[in-house]
Write a protein that binds this DNA or RNA. Sequence first.
DNA 1: ACTGATTCATACGGGCTGTATCTATTGCCC
DNA 2: GGGCAATAGATACAGCCCGTATGAATCAGT
Lengths: 198, 198
Amino acid sequence: MVRRTRAAMEATRATLLATARRVFGERGYADTSMDDLTAQAGLTRGALYHHFGDKKGLLAAVVEQIDAETDLRLQAISGTAEDAWQGFCDRCRAYLEMALEPEIQRIVLRDARAVLGGTLPNSQRHCIASMQRLIDNLIQQGVVAQADPRALALLIYGGLAETAFWIAEEDDGNVRLAQGAAALKLLLRGMLVEPGSS
Amino acid sequence: MVRRTRAAMEATRATLLATARRVFGERGYADTSMDDLTAQAGLTRGALYHHFGDKKGLLAAVVEQIDAETDLRLQAISGTAEDAWQGFCDRCRAYLEMALEPEIQRIVLRDARAVLGGTLPNSQRHCIASMQRLIDNLIQQGVVAQADPRALALLIYGGLAETAFWIAEEDDGNVRLAQGAAALKLLLRGMLVEPGSS
DNA sequence: ACTGATTCATACGGGCTGTATCTATTGCCC
DNA sequence: GGGCAATAGATACAGCCCGTATGAATCAGT
């Protein structure tokens, strides 16, 4: 199969990305061989190293894609709410549920941190940045108490990710999901200027 | 160097563990070769595979050790406080600072999750279990609102870990540490039965 | 149509992991 | 105290995987 039109070239990149996303999600980054992965995509490692540089580069591209999608899905939730505070709470809850999806859990929350570094400078940027903006707005509106929005966003985001692992290890996670959501509600109300009114 | 007394055997294990702890902390798990590691300990891989089974087993033992030490250090803090709630807050703050230490950050928070699994069933158990017990007591005393202690502990623990990465990436993390601690204080007060009184 | 650049395949070298084998010493039991 | 099983740990081996270097085929521009 040797086709090299401009369209076919971008198709190659997309195929590689989609295959990597699937295989990384199933087997994890470390247990995935680049020979197997490219073979499943009907290509060889030559294409991969040309488009993504190395294995880490491929993972970074996958994480970038997942993060962008996740952020879009979350914005659809927090954007529709009438009340800004309620929209924020809904978004947190929605993230907790999305963090249960095997793809996000394994690729973004497990492998990406170890391979790409602690803070994930480029990727996973959108989700946290969006949450930070939401918080910032709430502070401006006088709903949330004065604090660094970034610190708050990270505190919440990290907590949700950790809790998601705990929920996901249970066969029927519905009980734990409810418990996690309830506990989340408690912590979130502390951010309010008037915590008692929640 | 062939010495095989019972004492020397345990010394071998301890040497391997200490070397692994140092090298994993410096270079990270993935970039550490077992040949190099054992050579630095004055041994060969034969000893390593005999005592720990495989590379993951060695990491698990290191994490176990670090977690136990961390828990002891934290208990020393929360145990001395007069007020149980204040002791709990101090412990959270202390954990935030300890999560800045390169050894804990790289080995426990970065590599361990990816290599050993999301929830770290055995290791890292002590720290969270202790925090869970503290929360449980506070709920029993009517200080903290009714909620699942485990979910609360994970929410806080995960948030602190994530925030620690953000603090550590800054050269002088004192500003961010203060911001993180302030944001933490907000979230924690939400747990109280009477959040306004904090 | 010719030239340079690009896409992707193939071939190669090096390193790392895990296992199997082997030796020597230790502890146990008589 | 001597023989024997068990174990600590070194050495050798096979296999896998990654990254790079090389090469061929096609596309773009003039």
